Simulated scan of single mutants.
Amino acid sequence: MNMNALELKDTGLENEDPAAQVGKALEELKAKLETKAANDNKLTERLDRLEAKMNRPQNGPANDNEPRLETKAFNSFIRRGVERMDPLEAKALTVATDSAAGYLAPEQFGAEILKALRQFSPIRQYARVITIGGSEIKYPRRTGSTTAYWVGETDDRTESEAAYEQVAFAPYELATFTDVSNQLLEDNAYNLEGELSSDFAESFGIAEGSAFVTGNGTGKPKGIMNAAGIQTMITGNGTGFPTSAPADVLINMFHKLPGVHAQNGAWLMNRNTLGSIRTWKDSMGRYLVVDPISDGAPTTLLGRPIVETIDMDDIGANKYPILFGDLKGYRIVDRIGLSILRDPYTLATKGQVRFHARRRVGADVTNPDRFVKLKVSAT
């Protein structure tokens, strides 16, 4: 007999009509299947509840009837005092820094870190960036070129030759480290190691961004505002811009550079300076600063983008608040990108892990003739 066929049990009703017997058997099978389905649904619901409970953040609010350890600990403290508490419950209490406050009610922590905005100068996004494989790289830079002279058919020719110098780029090292306890690494709810990596990258970006603008080249990259050979214009006013036609100063800056460099140029200034010049107009009454008409487009000044650079000077006596030029004339060399080393051994006896972070980067101006900077000065 086929095992998959419907089996008719001995019910003592062999004399019944076969069709009736088949009908009863089908009814019994249907009842069993419905019962099994109901049991399966209950099991599935129970598994879903267990899975939801397991996936619930450990520091989040409890939705079941079981009180949290911190709540039980606080209740035990209120009832029996810390001297009679279970050691595990005592560890769950939060101790106030103010000794007069005693033990505080249990805290809850969100699974994210709230961070204040940290800004840094975005020179790297616009400069020419390369990666080197050695301790230094040198570039030849032309300082003089050949000259052609008009001559007669049989006149003697005049010699001329190009002159060059070498520009050397040496990467400098940025480094720091921080120590974190093993317990904090184990118990935190927001991937502390990943957060440290992000924080290191941000801190290094701030340090190098400042050096790219104001660095003196001693133990750090040479900043664009301290590079030699960049021409300087003055405002004509000892404390700021002239009260009459201040926009003319910026128009003159724009036309100070050759057209090919001006058409590739960008304006560097901080947000305070930008706020001061936003209301200025040219001689035809047109605003110099134009807001973007589409998302992602830059704010422009005389048709060229403005790069908000937090490390630029504010407007003030003998300050340099604005630079204009082709930022491809500033070169950044990376030797080692951001590297993070996890050291669990040095402070193992103290239950801590040390994280070392470092990178090597150098920078300098390769083409000072592509820039002009503005000084607040009367003469």
Rank of each mutant, 00 (worst) to 15 (best):
K328Y: 05
K350R: 15
F77H: 09
R80E: 10
Q119C: 06
L184T: 13
L268P: 01
M253W: 00
I230R: 02
R358Q: 13
Y103C: 03
A227E: 12
D313W: 03
R46Q: 08
G236W: 09
A127L: 04
F324C: 03
L185A: 07
Q263N: 11
K42Q: 09
L302H: 03
V353F: 10
T214A: 08
K72C: 07
N59D: 10
V249P: 00
P246T: 04
N4P: 06
P221C: 00
T379R: 12
A363I: 07
S294I: 09
A37H: 12
K373F: 04
I234A: 10
I336C: 08
S76N: 07
K36L: 13
A116H: 11
M312N: 02
R84E: 14
M225Q: 10
E16D: 09
E165Y: 00
G351F: 06
T239V: 15
R84L: 12
G351H: 01
T239P: 01
M269Q: 04
F324Y: 15
F324R: 00
I322E: 03
L288E: 07
N272R: 13
T243F: 03
L184E: 08
V82D: 05
P106C: 05
G303T: 07
W267D: 00
R141S: 15
V180P: 07
S145E: 14
Q21R: 14
L117A: 13
G275A: 10
L6Y: 00
D86G: 02
F241E: 01
D314K: 12
R124Q: 15
T273E: 00
G81P: 04
N4W: 08
P221W: 01
E28M: 03
S276V: 15
G152Y: 08
K91Q: 14
T279P: 07
K256W: 02
G60A: 15
I251Y: 09
W150M: 11
V167Y: 00
A38Y: 07
E14D: 12
E14A: 08
N75W: 12
D156Y: 13
I310G: 10
M269D: 00
D282I: 02
P242T: 04
N367S: 15
D295W: 03
P122F: 03
R331F: 03
L185Y: 10
S283Y: 08
E89M: 11
T232H: 09
F212S: 00
D311M: 07
P368R: 08
P344I: 00
T154G: 09
K138S: 15
I332A: 07
Y172D: 14
V180D: 06
F204L: 01
L174D: 12
L250T: 01
Y287R: 11
V333K: 05
V353W: 05
A211Q: 04
L114H: 13
E159T: 12
P106Q: 03
A228T: 15
G194D: 05
R49G: 06
A31D: 11
